[in-house]
């Protein structure tokens, strides 16, 4: 319990720091912060809206510390102001619309990469030094070091435009109504193949490489040698003895990876015009919609912190030592 209290207070501080960055950015830029924040859109806003925005972001003549306090209180109440691009929708609402799509994209691609990466990593370790290993392992690393922009663009060129197999834009066929019908679900699925596929390509190495390293370490342990010496078949030993133990470290990375890949999904959404929060962020940047840009960073921070907290939970479940007051 002490462990969780400590972690939670740490996350609270981390979130506060993210909010603090947001608070200071418009204020350290040269010029009137209010004009920076709302730019040309100010002309379109009614005086009441402008006052409400002043209130949300703490722009007033009060001392800085008081402005800061006001802003932080608002942020913790998830009052992030009004989007100037999607005016007059509040930022929190715009983000909530996108989050569903992003979580769908990220969740499915993470699960697929986890399964695929772990199995390939296992095989690479087991057939250490084989042709498979010396292609798959550096291959995975190389894939990981190609920017997602490139992967997405190449996928778009080949499958979307060159072969014209798959739809290249938006989350579903826009001629359909978003309803719980098979047709709609099928359209969603079809539209998600390219984005999910590219994310998997990008993510898989993150599971393959550690899995292979863990497994190689484990293969040095005697019980594996013993299992084989006892005459158990190769695959039996590999899955029952090796995989189970090698997977444990991967499980905790899984939750963390979820947080990271939300960032990675940004480009995917931009390239495929996928309606998640990454794409919303892109539009916000183009329109210099700063309230939305800032809200986006905060919601990502929330996602990261939640993922980390899940990793903590998993860690405690898997490693009982932590529960009893050891070091975190």
């Amino acid at each position: 319990m002490q462990f969780f209290a400590r972690r939670l207070s740490f996350y609270l501080v981390a979130f506060l720091i993210a909010a603090t960055i947001n608070f200071f950015l418009p204020r350290i830029m040269p010029g009137d912060p209010l004009a920076i924040m709302f730019g040309p859109q100010m002309a379109r806003m009614s005086p009441e809206t402008i006052d409400a925005m002043r209130d949300t972001f703490g722009f007033s003549d009060a001392p800085l510390i008081q402005q800061y306090f006001q802003y932080v209180v608002n942020v913790f109440q998830w009052d992030l102001g009004v989007s100037t691009k999607f005016f007059p929708k509040p930022v929190s609402e715009v983000l909530a619309d996108g989050l569903v799509w992003t979580l769908f994209l990220v969740g499915s691609s993470t699960i697929i990469s986890f399964l695929l990466g772990s199995i390939l990593g296992l095989l690479a370790a087991w057939f250490r030094g084989s042709i498979f290993d010396s292609l798959a392992t550096p291959g995975a690393l190389v894939m990981q070091s190609i920017p997602s922009v490139v992967i997405c663009l190449v996928a778009l060129i080949i499958f979307g435009i060159g072969l014209n197999w798959l739809p290249t834009g938006y989350g579903y066929d826009t001629s359909l109504d978003p309803q719980w019908t098979f047709e709609f679900a099928g359209s969603v699925l079809k539209h998600s193949i390219l984005p999910i596929g590219t994310l998997v390509v990008f993510q898989m190495a993150g599971f393959l490489i550690p899995m292979r390293a863990n497994m190689i370490n484990l293969l040095g342990e005697d019980y594996i040698t013993m299992g084989r010496a006892k005459g158990l078949s190769g695959s039996r030993v590999m899955f029952t003895y090796g995989a189970r133990n090698a997977l444990l470290p991967s499980m905790t990375t899984l939750a963390m990876a979820l947080g990271f890949v939300v960032g990675g999904s940004f480009i995917t959404e931009v390239v495929f015009n996928y309606p998640g929060i990454g794409y919303i962020m892109f539009q916000a940047i183009l329109a210099r919609d700063y309230p939305l840009v800032q809200g986006h960073m905060l919601i990502f921070t929330m996602v990261m912190l939640t993922a980390n907290f899940l990793a903590d939970l998993l860690y405690v479940v898997l490693d009982p030592r932590v529960r009893h007051g050891g070091e975190a």
């Binding site: 996350y11 981390a14 720091i17 993210a18 960055i21 947001n22 950015l25 418009p26 830029m29 920076i36 947080g259 990271f260 939300v262 960032g263 990675g264 940004f266 962020m281 940047i285 210099r288 700063y290 840009v293 800032q294 986006h296 960073m297 990502f300 921070t301 996602v303 990261m304 912190l305 980390n308």
Partner: peptide, 15 residues
């Protein structure tokens, strides 16, 4: 490490 890297960079760069 727990702050999201890319969104943080995007916010900085956007401003």
């Amino acid at each position: 490490l727990v702050l999201p890297q890319l969104p943080l960079l995007l916010v900085l760069a956007a401003f």
